[in-house]
Design a protein around this nucleic acid. Sequence first.
RNA 1: GCACCGGUGGCGAAGCGGCUAACGCGCAGGUCUGCAAAACCUGUAUACGCGGGUUCGAUUCCCGCCCGGUGCUCCA
Length: 492
Amino acid sequence: MTLRLFNTLTGEVDTLAPAPGEPLRIYACGPTVYDYGHIGNFRTFLQVDVLRRFLKLNGIPLRHVMNITDVDDRIIQNTVASGVTLREYTARFEQAFFEDLDALRIERPEVIARATEHIPRMVELVQRLAAAGAAYKTDEGSWYFRLAAFPEYGKLSKKDLSGMEDGARVDLDRYEKDSARDFALWKAAKPGETSWDTPIGRGRPGWHIECSAMAMEYLGESFDLHAGGEDLMFPHHENEIAQSETVTHKPFARHWMHVRFLLVDGRKMSKSEGNFFTLRDLLLKGYKASAIRLALISVPYRHQLNFTFDSLTDATKAIERLRTFHRRLAGGNFPSGENAALQAAARKAEANFLGALADDLNTAEARAPIFELVRTANTAMDEGQLRSCDRDLILSVLRKFDAVFDVIDDRDEEPTRRAIEWARQTGRESEIAPELLARQSIADEQVEALLAERAQAKKQRNFARADQIRSELAEKGIVIEDSKEGVRWKRK
RNA sequence: GCACCGGUGGCGAAGCGGCUAACGCGCAGGUCUGCAAAACCUGUAUACGCGGGUUCGAUUCCCGCCCGGUGCUCCA
């Protein structure tokens, strides 16, 4: 199945496929590790994860590179302020970032590249740009890209830059630049700041050159797909194109994918606005990692997603439905044989699921046939019409669903536990929701013991005691499921 | 100001020229139960922002308007 994906560069939905015999080469802009990531950051990484997983499900080998920006103005500022080394400072947030990726079940790219480990490649690129007459050095020792050297500038974001004439609104003298729109390739070192001594001077790389250099290092001068948040389209990605194509005279990335913003209560979420939630904030409020994943995935990447706590509650319930169904199906005993109608329903669900994803990663549409299948199969089970072959087929459909969505398999305990641990270690205990602590306050064995006692009480028709135990467990977030097959329980 | 995106039942959200307008949540009823809960099933809602136009036919295309958002600067 071929993926049709919107391409910002062409403005159309284009086929995305690797060259024959080659892996699909992807570069996706990663985090700047100066703080904990917020859920808006993770929406982008999650959508790229959906892309990855769908391609893999279709048997397409990947070479996916993600950068870690571990040097930039904010990081330098913060290190200077806190008196630690750059590496000490960034290591902490880099580790936190990976923990968060794990919590959300975001797969690791094949290559993870730190900016600080690729300085020579960036320097080399600046030198090549200088040789081509597209870069110049200022008196203070910074290097800039000469925008005039790249007439196609603006082709990605479709911007008409003619309205921004030099000098109209920017005082050129203050910037030492030839043109107001020229952007920094290399920033001269200032006293006390981390810097590198290189053939082009002492300093540190600009943000844009970092991505160009690392993308070319691992993917070559031309590659299949470049992805990132919509805000990076201009100027970051536009600048990457300008730098790279000026040097190589080849198209940088053929296909560009931009994930639209996540809004909170209808407003843009950003660190500068302060209205943001980190993944950890949500985990400490008691939301499960899987619910956060599903909520952030379910709105297709090309639409803005308005995040609300209701959406997390909805997602939690939806996941419960899937998990309950899966448990019922996988654990049940069914007569051998097959039910033709169910077989057809399962195959149709799978085809619709895959088809929706192949159509520009329409995750909202892709979910629908899975839930329809759940209903159909539940009905069949109630009526005793589901056979072992049907079970096998439906389970395989669920596996494919989960190969992309990854929410049925329950591994929610670990991220929550870690978030609590982290909160305790960093003096954020007050942020842990009381219900969450209550939920953690009872061990599995204690639950089992109380349930055994309750069963005994029920047998003796001591309903008062049985109900007492029931409400006691309920207070601790334990949900009891009485059924013909016996008692099951789960944590809310 | 310029540019772009969106406004679908109580909420979220697909669909984008002609099917009973998906799906999830919610809500109601039923099955089950000592009672509940959970689970499942069924049902539910006179949902396509407003006004024109094109068309045999428009939620879907065009124009205008209103509302919300985003970009144009660091930002996923």
